[in-house]
Design a protein around this nucleic acid. Structure first.
Lengths: 215, 215
DNA sequence: CTTCGATTGCACCGTCCGGTTTACTTTCTG
DNA sequence: CAGAAAGTAAACCGGACGGTGCAATCGAAG
């Protein structure tokens, strides 16, 4: 009833589809898989429930599709953050702190995607193994690899000191973001900005004690 | 029908109660809060559903009660592990590795308790704030404090080197256990023993590079 | 044995949910 | 314009669930 007046645009087929996907992402993230009813997803998408079942076989397929999308969205967003802060850092410590804060607190329109990551954790034991596996490789795996690449470059430039950038990247995420993640229940509850910054700066200092250039 | 033959013992009133609690812990942990039906909990406890509602006001109160119990059980178990490995360590690195493995993989009858921790994460945004808060202080907070105490002692004995045992304890859990936690989806999926040991030993080595005695 | 409280089985209520059916309308295309 | 493709609203189905009412039962204490 909403899109009736506005000509649906000649974007073509996937017009309703993207609305469904967006709505499913929102509702799944907000309610979790079971609480999210197909009716509420349809309402959120301003779409008939039948239309959802025209696009997806059942509720689970809808979830899996949306999970896959979100995995890529989060990964690309984080890769972008990493590049932005580590491409040519002037004050390395400050950039690492800023990057850590950005990675640990999903901002802008990505909260829904991070909420879906929580769904992956909640449903992990009930999801097909290929889903959890591909999430790890396409999600955290990609950001960790991107981190490692930058660390290798920085090490070659004398800004860091490590022979194993992979391990350094792992230690960065562990020291800098893992506690903020857990403290905020994976982003489900808000973490005061000052606490976040304290956690991240402490982690970055430890990281630089491990891998800083001037020892 | 099961306890009919055996005399219910004069343990007194809470006989059925503990059965209910145990069953709720098992089923909530296995299925999550919503999937766990009160009927299935009653079946697992070999108890009438009506009896559950004689002991608890509703399903949510049952969950909250069981969560509180599990918080303490996990905390005590982990404190015990910490004491056992760090009371008088001969080979400190080996003990730290063993402790890290023990902390990162819930064994014996504690898997159900750890499964409930997953429920806390899954329901965090829908739980009363006091519940999540008290979980943090009574759960991870206690184990971290116990770790810090041992690190302070070890530092005084010259086995470690840190002025801030609190921070050292945080970095230990982050470097040693956090990745194993995330890799296993908080214990929901099994993590191969060799991978676990590799993660933990790498974390311990980094920890000792940060806080080891001989530098 | 009687009494009393705890427990039990079971039917029941209202609700919600995943998914389907049907009949109708819209929109694009040729 | 004709007709296919897509969308819509609404009723509907079978099943599950949280929670209650109630009569019957059990076990121990007096």
């Amino acid at each position: 009833m909403t899109a009736a007046t506005t000509p649906p645009a000649r974007t073509g087929r996937p017009a309703k589809r993207v609305a469904i996907d967006r709505a499913a992402r929102v509702v799944f993230g907000r309610e979790g898989y079971i609480r999210a009813s197909v009716d509420s997803i349809a309402a959120e998408a301003h779409v008939s429930k039948r239309t959802i079942y025209n696009h997806y076989q059942d509720k689970e397929q809808l979830l899996l599709c949306v999970l896959k999308e979100s995995t890529h969205a989060v990964a690309e967003h984080q890769e972008e953050l990493i590049d932005r802060h580590l491409a040519s850092p002037v004050d390395l410590e400050a950039e690492l702190v800023a990057l850590g804060c950005a990675l640990a607190t999903p901002q802008s329109g990505f909260k829904e995607h991070f909420a879906l990551v929580r769904v992956i954790f909640a449903e992990a034991s009930r999801l097909p193994g290929e889903v959890t596996d591909s999430w790890r490789t396409e999600g955290p795996g990609r950001t960790q690899a991107r981190l490692a690449r930058h660390f290798a470059t920085l090490s070659a430039a004398g800004r860091l000191r490590t022979d194993e950038p992979q391990e350094a990247a792992a230690h960065f995420t562990q020291l800098v973001t893992s506690e903020a993640y857990e403290r905020s229940f994976h982003g489900a509850l808000p973490l005061p900005a000052d606490e976040l910054e304290a956690l991240v700066t402490a982690g970055v200092r430890a990281f630089l004690r491990l891998y800083g250039a001037r020892s």
